[in-house]
Write a protein that binds this DNA or RNA. Structure first.
Lengths: 211, 211
DNA sequence: TGTACATCAGTGAACGCGCGTTCACTGATGTAC
DNA sequence: TGTACATCAGTGAACGCGCGTTCACTGATGTAC
């Protein structure tokens, strides 16, 4: 069975996966419609008909890209904040550690982070059907849910200062990442994003830690 | 003279301006390369050759769009923060008032803010030449300069808590706007952006206002 | 005031290239019995 | 173990359409003298 084979030794040279990888790089650089099937197959080394074996049309490529991105995104966040909690049992301190590690991860990328597919797609959303736009929204709602849960949990042990807008504070994580990626790209400065994440951490601390 | 005529009564039906207006809407919806010259001239009611009278090629359209956007952006910000200062002589309180007005302005837009051309272009920057990318960077550096100056000025009168990263705090304004626009678009929720701006205001207050 | 010329804001027709998509076909591997 | 059939992962050639760009030309308005 192909399935079980893939489980024990995932083929890194899987053609479909390579198409998606090359496509993501190209789309983040030029946008979806400027990314031609022609250039993807040239990079991967198959013919055009080979492409249409894997994706019935270009829209299905977009959908597969989005699904791949979402899965990756979830894996990375799960891992980081889980590690933050392992080192600490208080939800606030675990969160602060997680944010620190997140900032460090952004800092240690070889060069400027290539960007976020969700942002790229959202600025081209008229190209896509509702299904893809919904996937994109789902990804962002997952960020909101993840951070919102954490803030609520922290608040049960650490009374917050004032009456903060918890939903907006949860969204602020995704907001700063998306915005930080844009500034980092436009100014070609890889330090911008991690520093924004650290400011978010400062803000969280200012809200929950007694002075 | 055409110039003086335009000064006394700016032609609102100026063809070139209408092309730029229509182009901006289309680019924010689909991206630059999916926006065809054909659709622009159809919307404005001229022929293709008429388009090439105004712009020597498509790249020059992009440049003109960027310049128009930068000028508009500067005008709006100048006006808002000037009004904030008029009502108040302390630089901190003037800033807080300006931020409040800024948030209100975002809130009162008819529907979801259409987005930021700088963000759209930055996720397609391989389509453009260095001149356009530099214009984009210049626009963002102007935000940084504007907010950085203000923070420095405030700090002379209100000693900040801790050792804040003022550059990152200045960038945070643009970051939250860019990120807030993306979330707002993806979730079709026009309240997200203004609430992020209000959080920024809370953060500024937390840094500078004694408890 | 009239004439000659220049500029402005376009028109109309044609171009060639690259794009996404389709269709009939194929060689290698997997599965049933 | 051999044979028949099915599926996988593509190939190769052709398609038509839309795109950005070019070129020669034009009618209306402005300017010099």
């Amino acid at each position: 069975m192909v399935q079980s084979k893939m489980l024990q030794a995932p083929k890194t040279t899987d053609t479909r996966e390579r198409l998606l990888e090359v496509a993501e790089t190209a789309v983040l650089a030029k946008g979806f419609s400027a990314t031609s099937i022609e250039e993807l197959i040239a990079a991967v080394g198959i013919t055009k008909s080979g492409f249409f074996y894997h994706f019935k049309d270009k829209n299905e490529l977009a959908k597969a890209m989005m699904l791949r991105y979402l899965a990756h995104d979830q894996r990375v966040l799960d891992e980081i904040f889980q590690r933050g909690d392992e080192l600490n049992e208080d939800p606030l301190h675990g969160f602060l550690v997680g944010l620190k590690m997140f900032a460090e991860m952004m800092q240690n990328l070889p060069d400027v982070h290539p960007g976020c597919l969700a942002a790229s797609f959202c600025y081209q959303d008229h190209l896509f059907d509702k299904e893809i736009r919904d996937l994109n929204a789902k990804g962002i709602l997952r960020w909101r849910g993840r951070f919102r849960e954490r803030l609520d949990l922290i608040a049960t042990r650490h009374p917050p200062r004032g009456q903060p807008d918890f939903e907006a504070m949860a969204d602020m994580a995704a907001t700063l990442v998306e915005g930080g990626l844009i500034l980092g790209r436009a100014l070609r400065d890889a330090t911008i994003l991690p520093r924004q994440v650290l400011l978010y951490r400062d803000f969280i601390r200012a809200i929950f830690v007694a002075a």
